[in-house]
């Protein structure tokens, strides 16, 4: 178990700066999620922590040890890949035990450890299968098993759920959260999916173009986004963001209000708009309004609201929920 500290970490490929100086501390036992749009550098940063990529500059500590120049296998980390990266020619048993076998550990010890790991993950009945004969969720678990058996101080996950279907994904989210609670290990998790970030993280790190945009707990990011970027990235449907005259009227450069923080009325309100499009999600209904000044507003209303296309309605921001940047 260990704390991970990054100090002014940088990475460039030739003249292209991918990571532009990151300072970050991931506390011992924390579940930390790196989130951001594709190309923001989140996977590169994770690979730098793993040691698969070198840092061009800066210092990196895992559990008070300087690992900036350490080999991946010497850092006390384990990694679960997006593709799982299970060795296709080895059985589940040999996949999980591969690292120990490379280290030349006695066969009996490897066998015992593999059994124990398999039990924790309910993989015992699959031990003699090849990865090809496993379902997506089972492969995922084998990949986790291969990580657990190394008894790492830090687990690294690189978008591990993106190859699964929606139902399995939400199940695996829960399993991973359980696993974290059980092992109490430090985990760093990369995703582009803000739902995964919100549901699993103790701490979210929002990355944008190689820089940290904001660090905080899920609700901090939701309630007090530090920038329009974070505001737009966290929360679904996206926050309504306005610049120019409207923002100026509100006394800021960017004005934002979340769809769920607009109250609707058929008689009066701050803005009057025409319903252009209705999305019925069941519990909620999302309305897309045309409004002369704002151009477009997205509003979230209860699922049973009786509304029709082209209907004119009024919306008003809930006091105290507006964001001014």
């Amino acid at each position: 178990m260990a704390k991970v500290v990054l100090e002014n970490i940088r990475k460039s490929f030739g003249s292209l700066d991918v990571i532009k100086g990151i300072d970050l501390a991931v506390e011992d036992g924390e579940f930390c999620v790196f989130v951001g749009p594709s190309g923001c550098g989140k996977s590169t940063l994770l690979r730098m922590i793993s040691g698969l990529e070198t840092s061009s500059d800066g210092r990196m500590l895992i559990g008070d040890r300087d690992v900036t120049h350490a080999e991946p296998s010497q850092r006390g980390i384990a990694m679960v890949f997006q593709s799982y990266a299970l060795y296709p020619h080895l059985t589940v048993r040999d996949n999980i035990g591969f690292g120990l076998s490379l280290a030349g550990r006695p066969k009996a010890e490897i066998a015992a450890k593999v059994e124990k790991t398999a039990e924790t993950l309910q993989l015992t009945h699959l031990l003699d299968r090849k990865p090809k004969a496993l379902s997506g969720g089972q492969r995922q678990r084998v990949a986790i098993g291969r990580a657990i058996i190394r008894d790492p101080k830090v687990f690294l996950f690189d978008e591990p759920l993106s190859n699964l279907d929606a139902a399995l994904r939400s199940q695996m989210r829960m399993e991973l959260t359980d696993l974290h609670a059980r092992l109490g290990a430090t985990m760093i998790y990369v995703t582009h999916d803000q739902v995964e970030a919100m549901t699993m993280a103790d701490k979210i790190v929002v990355l944008n173009a190689g820089r940290v945009e904001q660090v905080g707990s899920p609700m901090e990011l939701y309630n007090r986004p530090a920038s329009p970027f974070v505001a737009g990235f966290i929360g679904s449907p996206k926050m309504n963001l306005y610049e120019g005259a409207i923002a100026a009227a509100e006394g800021c450069t960017t004005y934002g209000i979340r769809p769920e923080h607009l109250s609707m009325s058929t008689s009066e309100g701050k803005w009057k708009g025409t319903i252009r499009h209705i999305e019925r999600l069941g519990a909620d209904t999302v309305l897309y309004l045309d409004q002369p000044d704002l151009m477009s507003i997205v509003v979230r209303v209860p699922g049973d609201a009786e509304l029709a296309l082209r209907q004119e309605i009024f919306v008003t921001p809930v006091p105290g929920k507006e964001h001014r940047f």
Binding site: P72, S73, L102, R146
Partner: peptide, 24 residues
């Protein structure tokens, strides 16, 4: 990814080649 998984598992270059790549 397979090479990298092996690196993290602590494989030396010749082990990556002979134990992971060559069998495939």
């Amino acid at each position: 990814d397979l090479d990298e998984a092996a690196i993290i598992d602590g494989a030396k270059p010749w082990q990556i080649f002979f134990r992971v790549i060559l069998p495939l």
